[in-house]
């Protein structure tokens, strides 16, 4: 076998697709819950965009021109909901199935290995996230919050952001011992959601906090989305892309290693 040994021996049978098929079949029954995922970021968009629109006034867009609060907050919510969905799926769902449903135990008695399971579950999560992002972008377009054809790239960008968080999230899920540990994830996720310039510009912070926020992955996701939906695209966005590429590689490598030890004991 000449394939690079980045995953433990026997952990990948190349059948992640069968795992995706299972998810699709299961979700056909719970389609309402699946589809409803589109609405949550939209509720936020309407509540904040309309409600605060008359209070906050205009903000400065990525290209320096004034934009409405709705146009400011929308790309932030797009990136944030990609993160929230990916983290939920890769931590909560994985942990639930591991601990209680024993679905993975049954899968691993077949030729499938931990890497098939991880890839299959992540792919499904991304398919779903992609649907949500597409729905959100369509609403943004309908509300006139998109001002550039670059926005077409916001969809793959949302998938990249979700993939980055899913890879790291799954790595984190493999370290969790009990439900109590979910609070730690919440403790990382919520401040990131609230303070990574989703709702207000980074200029409100004093210098040291600003630097800290600029290290958050979600900050880079949001910057990427703002650039693409407004058309203020520079070479600089490749830096944001690289940030997430590294998350995917490092998180994925760690998760594949850990899943093997976790599932096959």
């Amino acid at each position: 076998m000449t394939v690079l040994r980045i995953v433990p021996m026997g952990s990948y049978a190349g059948r992640a697709r069968a795992v995706i098929e299972r998810s699709a079949l299961v979700n056909r029954r719970n389609w309402l819950l699946v589809v409803s995922g589109v609405f949550e970021p939209l509720f936020y968009l309407f509540a904040l965009g309309i409600g605060f629109g008359g209070i906050v006034g205009t903000l400065t867009g990525p290209d320096g021109s004034p934009i409405s609060y709705a146009a400011y907050v929308a790309p932030g919510l797009l990136a944030a909901s990609a993160m929230n969905g990916a983290i939920h799926d890769s931590t909560f769902n994985i942990f639930l199935k591991l601990k209680y449903a024993k679905v993975y135990d049954a899968m691993l008695a077949t030729p499938l290995g931990p890497t098939d399971v991880a890839l299959g579950e992540t792919s499904w999560s991304l398919i779903r996230g992609g649907i949500y992002a597409a729905g959100f972008l369509a609403v943004m377009a309908a509300l006139g919050l998109i001002s550039s054809p670059w926005a077409l790239l916001a969809l793959p960008a949302a998938l990249l952001v979700a993939f980055g968080f899913a890879a790291v999230g799954m790595g984190a899920a493999t370290l969790m011992r009990s439900w109590q540990d979910f609070d730690l994830i919440l403790l990382v996720q919520m401040p990131m959601f609230l303070f990574s310039t989703t709702f207000f510009p980074i200029t409100v912070y004093p210098e040291p906090i600003r630097i800290a926020v600029e290290c958050f992955p979600l900050y880079h996701g949001i910057e990427l989305m703002r650039a693409l939906t407004s058309g203020a695209v520079t070479w600089g966005i490749l830096g944001h892309v690289a940030y997430f590429a590294i998350m995917v590689a490092a998180g994925g490598w760690f998760a594949a290693r850990r899943l093997g030890t976790l599932l096959l004991t």
Binding site: A13, R22, P111
Partner: peptide, 26 residues
């Protein structure tokens, strides 16, 4: 050898675990 050929061996086995781990969502 299970360490080297896990997926190939499992492909030819049937396993009934101690506790039913049927997929309750299907």
């Amino acid at each position: 050898d299970p360490d080297r050929h896990g997926p190939r061996i499992r492909g030819r086995l049937g396993v009934v675990p101690q506790q039913d781990n049927l997929d309750n969502e299907l």
